[in-house]
Write a protein that binds this DNA or RNA. Structure first.
Length: 157
DNA sequence: GCCAACGTTGGC
DNA sequence: GCCAACGTTGGC
């Protein structure tokens, strides 16, 4: 029995790591390190290879979904939590019981045109999206199949 | 740069 | 376990 594909959204600040950075990366793949929020971590732990990811630019003008990626490696410990002096170092985490995980994701495609936050808000079918909830700051979040399918229809090409 | 919303920390 | 203080996120 194979597990059905799941859908997700991941935020990145383009000034730090953009969809173009992902497209240029070796094997068009990157590890998603630096997540230090338990809810976001738990969602990453639920990811499996072949799951699909909406790549979202936060702190951008405009904030928007800009591309699609896919999970290529399930959750494993984020090494930066053990690097003393690193911005994401966590002194409370141990090798025996790492607190923070990351996944690997691979570039699939860039949308021909970004789907802005304003554009997404115009869609009644997307009203329930985690991304659109007031005060939502989760950097890794689930997307329903219905939401995914609708978003794909909004993106020409 | 502002600030609302949210998560975490730590004193009690 | 409560909650004030603080830090961060991220749209605007």
């Amino acid at each position: 029995m194979s597990r059905e594909r799941h859908y997700w959204l991941m935020k990145s600040e383009p000034a730090v790591f953009s969809i173009d950075d992902l497209a240029r990366a070796p094997k068009r793949t990157t590890c998603w390190d630096g997540v230090r929020n338990y809810q976001a971590r738990n969602f990453m732990r639920a990811m499996k290879p072949d799951d699909q990811v909406l790549f979202y630019h936060s702190n951008a003008d405009p904030p928007a979904i800009v591309g699609i990626a896919q999970v290529v490696k399930a959750a494993y410990p984020d090494p930066t939590q053990f690097e003393r002096g690193h911005a994401h170092f966590d002194s409370a985490s141990t090798l025996a019981a790492p607190r923070w995980d990351m996944v690997d994701i691979q570039f699939v495609k860039k949308l021909p045109r970004p789907l802005s936050l304003d554009r997404l808000r115009e869609e009644p079918l997307l009203k329930g999206m985690v991304l659109l909830r007031k005060g939502s700051r989760l950097s890794v979040q689930p997307v329903t199949k219905a939401e995914w399918q609708h978003i794909v229809t909004l993106a020409p090409g």
